[in-house]
């Protein structure tokens, strides 16, 4: 049986300055420096990117694999936008519309601002 010579590294890519790092795969390499070099060509020979991370597999920690770790069973609408959809109806009484984030973004983008 053949023992491993290289070590696995997990590879993460940032495609654009506004994107989060995205996991794209694994490479085998002799060192973190070589892992970065081979990951560049194994995962980004066609796609553009602005960032690349490699993390030694041994340093990766993941969430508990039991799906219960991600359980969200009860109503959590109080922490979401759609939990407040009745605002629009209630504003009508005051002859106003509910304010949305995109209204503010639009204000800031408009030249008159």
């Amino acid at each position: 049986m053949s023992a491993e010579v290289f070590e696995p590294y997990q590879v993460f890519v940032r495609r654009d300055a506004l994107d989060a790092m995205e996991h794209v795969g694994t490479v085998m390499a002799a060192s973190p420096e070589m892992a970065v070099l081979v990951a560049r060509q194994n995962f980004l020979r066609r796609d553009a990117a602005v960032g690349l991370w490699v993390v030694a597999d041994a340093d990766m920690h993941s969430a508990n694999t039991d799906p219960q770790f991600f359980a969200e069973e009860l109503d959590k609408s109080y922490r979401r936008v759609d939990g407040y959809s009745d605002n629009a109806r209630r504003w009508k009484r005051f002859k106003q519309q509910a304010l949305q984030l995109q209204d503010i973004v639009r204000d800031l983008e408009s030249k008159e601002g």
């Binding site: 010579v5 290289f6 002799a30 060192s31 420096e33 070589m34």
Partner: peptide
């Protein structure tokens, strides 16, 4: 491969 690994350790 073995030399790359040994060199990495040395570096």
């Amino acid at each position: 491969r073995e030399a790359m690994r040994a060199g990495a350790a040395q570096l």
